[in-house]
Design a protein around this nucleic acid. Sequence first.
DNA 1: TAATATAGTTAGTCAAGGCGAACTTTTCAA
DNA 2: TTGAAAAGTTCGCCTTGACTAACTATATTA
Lengths: 161, 161
Amino acid sequence: MTVTRERALSASLEDYLEAILNLSAGSKVARSKDIAEVLEVSRSSVTGALRTLAEKQLVNYKPYGFITLTNQGWAQAEKVVRRHNIIKSFFVSILGVDPTTAGKAACRAEHALGPQIVNRLLHFIEFATANNNSGLDLAKEFTKFCENNFDKVGPDAGEQI
Amino acid sequence: MTVTRERALSASLEDYLEAILNLSAGSKVARSKDIAEVLEVSRSSVTGALRTLAEKQLVNYKPYGFITLTNQGWAQAEKVVRRHNIIKSFFVSILGVDPTTAGKAACRAEHALGPQIVNRLLHFIEFATANNNSGLDLAKEFTKFCENNFDKVGPDAGEQI
DNA sequence: TAATATAGTTAGTCAAGGCGAACTTTTCAA
DNA sequence: TTGAAAAGTTCGCCTTGACTAACTATATTA
């Protein structure tokens, strides 16, 4: 049996994969320039990352050619996106954080939280939804609780962390 | 008014500060060797980090001398520790994650989650506690929910993220 | 107190991941 | 169809943060 040693991707490379997947989904083709724009990185940095990802067989890439994800790369990218969505969803729908802040935080946290915790977050969302259906809206209760106890002076007043 | 431009600390430097605070709290003095041990890093890396932190006036450091936190460094370190504890606490007491996994994840996530979200997590813990007192034990309910829906085959079976 | 073990530092190296400037390819409009 | 403009690449450089090996300072103990 041939074992391909695949080391865990760095946060940075995961970001590139994620961006490529998102761009591919949107417009069918991921252009180097757009990746740079999305990740707020120079075009030359993108080239470097693409070379690395190609070495790892995660993207099909030849200079001046099209950029596509390999099957392996697609799978990896989907995992990242999935993690991202679960985390963001938790922030928004349970914690009541605004989508923009939640998205940015998810971007960073998606590289920090392992499968067990992400799974638990997912379950928790499901739990809240189930509870919601059976009468208790957890998110709403929490929001009310925050309003009563912390938000008296205004939205998110008194942040001192 | 003199403004000291203090750039945000890198994750790595935050880790050093945190380790120094924890060691100081435990044994009154943080030794270079112990920092290396805690962070699983070479002694020379510690020296390098201490030099950087000293430049930023966050530690009092002279070669071969004692290592202590400045007031500023102490304040920063406490923020990091506070963030860490809130996040870990959420993982353990709400999500029901084991303390070891939770601690490691908190270590990584504490650099990724901003004040708003950490605050919300803290509030959520308080919310759960308040609810707990008034009859509904959220954490217990969630655990039950997980057991009923996901843990049928064993603890954390079916992790596919 | 001298010898040695331990702690700490220095110097040199490396890899990752960024950048800008200059160059090459491709595209598109006149 | 040709010549700019846009897109992409290459090159050289920088920073961060880690490492090892070799050195120096401090502590300990016989």
